[in-house]
Computed example of a mutant assay.
Amino acid sequence: MQFDPKGNAPADLSHAGSVVDQAIAYMMEQRIGTLSAASALLGGALGLLSRSMSDEAIVQVLNNAIASVKAGELRADGEGQG
């Protein structure tokens, strides 16, 4: 992610998130399976990251994502914590 000198997220992050939300909604309308849609989005995201980040930086992003999952941060109800 591109941060400004103060560490803030870029101004277009909200717009990018909205576009992804629309793509997800479209895939669900097309009855694309959740796992297929998520796998395609993850693969696309990793491909995009590989254009601008080192492999080690991508691994750190993935490790941060794993830590968030393990901490239950992706579930509002805390369900599924391992």
Rank of each mutant, 00 (worst) to 15 (best):
S39R: 04
A67V: 03
E29N: 09
A25D: 13
A76C: 05
A38T: 15
A25T: 09
I24D: 09
G47A: 09
D77P: 02
Y26N: 08
A9T: 13
S52Y: 14
D77Y: 07
L41R: 03
E56A: 15
E79N: 12
V69M: 10
A16E: 03
M28D: 15
M53Y: 14
S50T: 05
A25M: 02
M28P: 01
A71F: 06
L62P: 01
G43A: 03
A76G: 06
R31Y: 08
K70F: 01
Q30F: 07
R75P: 01
K70M: 14
L13V: 07
K6P: 02
M28S: 12
E73C: 04
R75I: 00
G43Q: 06
L48Y: 10
A38P: 02
G80D: 02
L46M: 06
Q22L: 00
Q81H: 09
G80C: 08
S52I: 13
N8C: 07
L13N: 04
D21W: 01
G80V: 00
G17P: 00
I58G: 02
D55C: 09
S50H: 10
G80Q: 04
S50M: 00
G78R: 00
A45H: 11
I24G: 04
M53R: 15
D4E: 06
I32G: 07
A23C: 03
A71W: 08
S52F: 13
Q60V: 13
N64L: 12
S18H: 03
L41T: 09
L46Q: 07
Q60S: 05
L35D: 15
A40T: 14
G17V: 01
R51P: 00
A67W: 04
G7A: 05
P10Y: 04
H15M: 07
E56V: 14
A76E: 14
I66C: 08
A40N: 13
N8K: 10
S50W: 02
Q81I: 14
H15S: 08
